[in-house]
């Protein structure tokens, strides 16, 4: 069966007074039906812009330069605004990082949920809307939904607001839910509750989930496959277990090394990734990670590495793994054992 969503060579950029910011520079991947995929990357890696492109919600300065976004076989890039509006919220929906600024503070939460239902099905009666809204609020475990649906967003805690956002996102039974850092603004205890809720709902509703986050721990709990982005490119893609057991790309390794685990040896120093992310107005000619990479060679700084398939569902974009890489032209800049 073809993938639910298939992104091919997507390039998105923003026009600013300082020049063209090349936020996404040729990203390809697919998401199967009922699958949950995590996109990991730091700020500026292009992970959010990729999904704003899918939803065609880019700011007015943003442009999709190249590539196609196939959803159920249709290229979203080519759709009119009207056609896109029918898909957004109904077949693909999204939850955002900050549940406070995503809800309208002047409208009771129940009405915000029923507005979603009404927007995509104008024939729905008032009573029917209310019934469905109550079902949805119950599904996301809002206590006393009959009473709480009349409350305003400021009367809800952060976790409760995010539950309302999820109820709205699920209102039209979408086949794809995109969650952009939905738990980053929440406490660990509430994050844990929201992750459990999402896991349960995915099993019940059977939708695909795309989870955008910078937290590898969250990905490990929720996703079956991970895409690691950096500098507007996919650095590594891998099934979840393999990624944690044997990270291949130096950036992925760097990320895993820089988080202390709960059993971290305290005498050992953390291994940070030196330096800072690249300037996306003038992205480096070679691998975007090369300036921070302990294994970088001359070729890494001059030529973009090709994508190399490393096994079932695994690929990386690194000269260390490229079969046609030239023989080592000079010693590595950094120390470290290289396992290609």
């Amino acid at each position: 069966m073809p993938n639910l969503l298939e992104i091919n060579r997507l390039k998105t950029s923003f026009l600013t007074s300082g020049g063209e910011v090349q936020a996404v520079r040729g990203v390809s991947f697919g998401i199967g039906r009922g699958e949950s995929v995590g996109i990991v990357g730091e700020s500026g890696s292009g992970k959010s812009v990729t999904f704003l492109s899918v939803l065609r919600l880019l700011a007015s300065t943003g442009r999709i330069r190249e590539g196609e976004i196939l959803f159920e076989g249709r290229d979203l890039v080519k759709l009119s605004r009207r056609e896109m509006r029918d898909i957004r919220g109904k077949q693909i929906s999204m939850i955002f990082q900050d549940p406070m600024s995503s809800l309208n503070p002047l409208i009771p939460v129940g009405r915000q949920v029923s507005e979603m239902l009404w927007a995509h099905d104008r024939g729905l009666s008032r009573a029917e809307q209310e019934k469905r809204t109550l079902e949805l609020l119950r599904m996301v475990k809002i206590p006393e939904p009959e009473k709480r649906m009349k409350s305003f967003p400021h009367e809800f805690s952060g976790g409760m607001r995010q539950r309302v956002m999820i109820a709205m996102a699920l209102a039209c039974r979408p086949s794809l839910l995109i969650a952009d850092e939905p738990t980053t603004a929440l406490d660990v205890s509430i994050q844990d509750q929201i992750l459990k809720l999402m896991r349960r709902l995915q099993a019940e509703v059977g939708m695909s989930i795309l989870f955008i986050t910078h937290d590898l721990g969250v990905v490990a709990e929720l996703c079956s496959r991970v895409i690691v982005m950096y500098g507007g490119l996919v650095m590594e893609e891998s099934p979840i277990d393999e990624l944690f057991a044997n990270p291949r790309h130096p950036y992925t390794r760097g990320l895993l090394n820089s988080i202390p685990s709960i059993t971290q040896d305290k005498a050992r120093r953390l291994t940070p990734i030196a330096g800072s992310p690249p300037d996306m107005i003038h992205p480096p000619a070679g691998c975007p990670f090369a300036p921070r990479c302990p294994y970088a060679r001359v070729i890494c700084e001059n030529r973009l590495p090709p994508e190399t398939v490393l096994g079932e569902g695994r690929r990386s974009m690194c000269w260390l793994h490229a079969p046609d890489a030239p023989a080592t032209d000079n010693p590595f800049k950094g120390e470290g054992e290289v396992r290609a």
Partner: peptide, 19 residues
């Protein structure tokens, strides 16, 4: 118990309930 575990195999074994 609420801390996400950055290891998928351990994460699946997690039974504790959090808050």
């Amino acid at each position: 118990q609420s801390i996400p575990i950055p290891d998928p195999r351990l994460a699946r074994l997690k039974t504790a309930s959090g808050l």
